Simulated scan of single mutants.
Amino acid sequence: MSQNSARFIVIEGLEGAGKSSAVSLVRDFIEKYTGHAPLCTREPGGTPLAEKIRTLVKTTEPGDPLCDEAECLLIYAARAQLVANVIKPALARGQWVLGDRHNLSSLAYQGGGRGLMSLVETVSRATLGDFKPDLTLYLDIEPALGLRRAARRGELDRIEQQELAFFERARATYLAKAQEDDSIVVIDAGQDMAEVHKDILAMLQQRL
């Protein structure tokens, strides 16, 4: 990678893996490395319409529970908006993009966790084609530990309230996809946060 070519870097991980602090760390690294702040996005969300979809996905409607297939399709609708209206234009003008989640989340959560891999792969191809991040940092953590950390932050949203087995299936999918794709780097997020950040910085120095 050269400093002058825009890149799309994504932070992935289960609940409680420390994505927010990792995003801040990587954002600062990119700004020092390139001399310019990256455009930071989150998924689902990142555009006015996509943020409305995020609210639908994250909240519980007791009288009309969101079915798994609708969840998947809503997330891809939000992602399509974000990629078309924010991410691709930023990359085209030479701005680096740093994402808090992207397509790997759907492969893990809706594909692995929900058991909808066929639907996820079909919709992914239809909406994204061959578009993908240049580099993904997957913060790997035991689901039980991650959920305990997440619970300390406050009330859990609809996704965070899923059973432990859901997150175990999602984690297994994350790890399997990382084995298949050398643009996905696994970081041990079960360590002390200082060690996690040290590993992230070492990886960025190596890759960039």
Rank of each mutant, 00 (worst) to 15 (best):
L39K: 09
T59G: 09
L39N: 05
S5I: 15
A37F: 02
L73Y: 01
K32R: 12
K58W: 06
A84W: 01
R54D: 09
P62V: 13
L107K: 01
G115Y: 01
S5G: 02
K32D: 13
T55M: 04
G46N: 05
A6Y: 05
D28H: 11
S5A: 12
G63I: 06
G35A: 12
D130L: 14
L74H: 00
A90M: 11
W96V: 05
R42K: 14
L135P: 02
T34M: 06
F8S: 03
E61C: 13
D68Q: 13
S106C: 04
T122Q: 11
Q95P: 04
R42S: 07
S5R: 15
E12G: 01
N4E: 15
L104K: 05
L66R: 11
L56P: 01
L119E: 10
Y109A: 03
V83I: 15
C40F: 02
A84H: 08
G13R: 08
R101M: 06
E12Y: 06
A77R: 07
T59R: 12
G63D: 15
N85E: 15
R79S: 09
T34E: 05
A80Q: 12
L107M: 04
A126I: 10
S5Q: 14
R125N: 13
F29C: 09
S24Q: 14
A78H: 12
D64H: 13
V83T: 13
S21M: 14
C67S: 09
V123R: 05
L39P: 07
G99A: 15
Y33R: 15
D28F: 05
R101E: 02
L39Y: 04
K58S: 10
L137M: 08
T41R: 00
A77K: 08
L14D: 00
P38Y: 08
E69S: 10
A126Q: 08
Y33T: 12
V120I: 05
W96S: 03
S105K: 01
C67F: 13
E61Y: 08
L98H: 07
I11H: 00
P89K: 05
E51N: 14
L128G: 08
